[in-house]
Computed example of a mutant assay.
Amino acid sequence: MNATICFIGAGNMAMSLIGGLLASGYAKDKIIATEPSEAQRRSVTERMGIYCYSDNNEAVARADIVVFAVKPQQLQGVCHEVQASIQAKRPLIISIAAGIRTVDMDRWLGGNNAIVRTMPNTPALIQSGATGLFANAKVKPEQSSQAENILRAAGITVWVKTEEQIDALTALSGSGPAYYFLFMEAMQQAAQDLGLDEKSARLLTLQTAFGAAKMALESTDDLVTLRQKVTSPKGTTEQAILTFEAQNLRQTVKDAMSAAQNRAVELADQLGQADTTGAKH
């Protein structure tokens, strides 16, 4: 790609994407950012070697692709601020702001925009993320490729066919890291209760989780087969699995993810209806 990419907002997620792009060989002079804080602008320039603007409109005027990397509650105000510049330039719009639907963002930007909505997760901060993407009807195939290449700088990418699927993806990979942290927390505590010291319990828990995930990613076997290979009949693992099943772990996970999905829908409704100008849509 030879497009100029502008990141509106230079927080952690934007820095992760920029770092990944630079590591892949993307030209520094083709990446710009904006940030209201002078100290943060200096930090971005020193760390990344890219130019960081204080004026969002000035940066947008120079961009072929604009990545909105601000907090969801700030997005509408920023969109209103740069609406005229976006309409004049017509760049590809990529949003990494959670919970904002493309129809609402398009309205805030004046309409008729090519928008890719994404849902990254926190492991993207260490280039190990899982990001879902949805493109509205205005996005051309080459623009889809551009968006995918940018988000791949932080990990794997998966396209969804309908925007409603973003809410399911939010419940899976968006919130998912916290589920694993909770499970690892429980495993570590259980190991300590069984007699291991805290340091050993933590290290063994984390390495076991890492090893299992790595095996699952690299194996040609499905998850059921991988589990069965570890579970010998009448062995120790089988007893643990039977306990999980007896206590309905699968239904608990399903209920938890459904609750997360429902909340994602509620938040999108709230954020889409709110209007910083005081009007309702």
Results as ranks from 00 to 15, higher is better:
Y179I: 08
Y179E: 11
E142C: 04
L182K: 10
L196E: 13
S173K: 08
Q143I: 13
D167N: 02
A191R: 10
A171H: 03
I156D: 06
L196T: 07
A190Y: 02
A186H: 10
Q165F: 06
A190V: 06
N149T: 07
T157R: 08
Q192F: 03
S173H: 00
T170D: 00
T157I: 14
Q165A: 10
Q192G: 07
F181S: 10
A186F: 10
A191Q: 11
G195K: 12
Y179C: 12
D193G: 04
F181C: 13
W159Y: 13
E185L: 13
E148K: 13
S175M: 10
Q189A: 14
Q192S: 05
D193K: 05
Q143E: 08
M187C: 12
L151I: 03
E198W: 02
Q146W: 14
E163N: 11
E148L: 08
Q189V: 10
L194F: 14
S173T: 09
E164I: 03
Q188W: 00
E198K: 15
Q188R: 15
R152K: 15
Q188E: 15
T170N: 03
D197A: 12
W159L: 02
Q189W: 00
N149C: 09
G155S: 01
Q165K: 09
Q165D: 03
K161C: 04
D167S: 01
A191N: 06
S175W: 05
L196I: 11
S145C: 02
T162W: 01
A191W: 10
V158I: 09
S145N: 08
E164V: 08
S145A: 08
Y180M: 10
G155Y: 07
A190C: 06
K161A: 15
G174A: 10
A190T: 15
W159F: 13
E185K: 15
V160S: 12
E185C: 09
S175K: 02
M184H: 04
F181H: 04
V160D: 03
A191G: 07
G176E: 13
S175A: 08
T170M: 09
T170F: 04
L194G: 15
